[in-house]
Design a protein around this nucleic acid. Structure first.
Lengths: 293, 293
DNA sequence: CGAACACATGTAGTAGAGCTACAGGAGGAG
DNA sequence: CTCCTCCTGTAGCTCTACTACATGTGTTCG
């Protein structure tokens, strides 16, 4: 965006609630403020300075100091940061799922966690690599999506977007088939290797085989590692630390969105007549409702 | 939450930017304000009343009237609403994808759209139906996930969460297999029928067959329709109007998150020893890195 | 065709918000 | 015990958001 200090959108983003925990560097009375904020962030977002000061049992300047200590320009700035964080969903760290949560709470917590996690992922996406991936896909004659387990589903999803990519796309359920396809690949093939861990051996083997045949390899992964080193282009998706039971979903969601970005990017660059074909196809699809989705 | 008029979190939620388009009911000079807000919402969120008035070329009370006309309590309230909406991502309606968008813009727009769309979906989820679905799954002996095309991938993903559900889960790539499975289903079987349109004939047939055999049917769909009428429990996910090329993804993402909610809900209710088994399994998985994801 | 009305807009004024400079007081070191 | 340092609250200032009122403009009806 801009490089001025004046925030265009509400400020450079650093998690607010996270920092309330490590009270190092916070003065004693400021911790009272932190406690109130951590306890009822929603209410605090609607409070005035005097109200928050009263609720915490301190004076107004203390609240002010609390804000500046946290790195905000002032109380207003702090409130916006808080509102922003609340809007995007309370990170699960602060609202861990409990065994006796009713379904309504469960829905809220999981959606919140998903939203805030996707939000963070967005900020970590390397657009240069995305651009490169789009170019590689544009130059390719065919694409092969490879992944195992959860990542396999992501690969299949990507392959379904073949019409957008405008080239033949495949994602084999069986990795042996993928290996065979990679073994006969040529310079015109792009292999998109999906692996959350970045070290799935089967996927690595396939990527390596493809590369030896002169094919291009795009890595879609969650961590640095052997797959990234091997690939011509690496899309690394940072998600929140995976600590919970239901975790792998987040990275998969982030992957899906990124595949969307790639597909859309490629489709747009293929020019107007390609987009027209897509529109016609969509129209046709909707007319023959009842057999597809 | 609370039932008081005083907003706990920043206000009852109604899209702000959407309403800037239909300028019916807006006074001429208020439209100048609306234009500025629609054009540079990010900057506006950081402006004071005087600044916005200056930017729009009107007086401060006009800005004030603009806010109240939109249904906000005042300028502050409006700013919070705006900030909230910006935080969660600008809906694509207001930042449609252009052919010449650079990748960075593409990433931002698509992520924004996804986030805001998921945000809306969250608000429309019927928690009573979620609770019912969880109960049905808890009572079941086995689960069968059915879907075609994009929804098929969703079904597969759900089936992969079988360990969480704690019962045998299947999702056949071939719908004939699904039909056969449904044909031999009994009262202990839960069929989760996934269809974005809610009128996919093949899926409907399978659901109907299962129901005739006494199985329970949970519908996971995007619209009211025959599937919902047929089902014992209907999870209807409202997403933004599907107008764009890359649309189906949103509904699929929403579906994934909801499946997450179901899986987590079921797992939690199965009791501590089930959770322990899960933890052990996860640990085992991470140790044998290199073959799974 | 003109007068009166209603509506839209800006001007003036007020209470309170956020922020700053300064002084008092508690706690620890010498 | 005394001094120094850091923390906290008091007092005051500026500018903000908001309200009441007056002016102007467009429209309708006699």
């Amino acid at each position: 965006m801009t490089t001025t200090g004046r925030p265009e959108a509400p400020g450079a983003y650093e998690p607010v609630l996270d920092r309330l925990g490590d009270q190092t560097g916070l003065r004693p009375s400021e911790r009272k403020v932190a406690a109130v904020v951590a306890e009822r962030p929603g209410e605090v977002a609607a409070m005035s300075m005097a109200e928050l000061a009263g609720a915490a049992g301190v004076s107004e300047p203390t609240v002010m100091r609390f804000c500046t200590t946290l790195g905000f320009g002032g109380f207003q700035d702090f409130k916006f940061g808080l509102a922003r964080e609340l809007a995007v969903g309370t990170p699960v760290t602060h609202s861990a799922i409990e065994v006796d949560d009713p379904p309504a709470t469960l829905v809220t917590k999981i959606f919140d966690h998903t939203l805030s996690s996707l939000d963070r992922t967005r900020r970590s996406v390397d657009t240069a690599q995305v651009e490169r991936a789009i170019e590689l896909l544009l130059a390719a004659d065919e694409a092969l999506f490879v992944g195992q387990g959860a990542s396999g589903i992501l690969a299949q999803d990507a392959a379904q977007k073949g019409v957008l990519f405008g080239i033949p796309c495949a994602a084999h359920a069986d990795l042996h088939q993928s290996f065979m396809a990679a073994a006969v690949a040529g310079p015109g093939t792009v292999v998109v290797a999906v692996s959350h861990t970045g070290r799935t051996t089967a996927v690595l083997d396939i990527a390596r085989a493809a590369k030896e045949n002169g094919a291009t390899v795009i890595a879609l992964t969650g961590e640095q590692g052997p797959l990234v080193e091997l690939a011509d282009c690496a899309l690394v998706l940072q998600t929140l630390e995976d600590t919970n039971i239901y975790t792998p979903t987040i990275s998969r969601l982030a992957g899906l969105v990124l595949v969307d970005v790639l597909a859309t990017g490629v489709a747009l660059r293929r020019g107007p007549e390609h987009l027209e074909r897509l529109a016609r196809m969509k129209e046709g699809l909707s007319r023959f409702r009842g057999s597809t989705d």
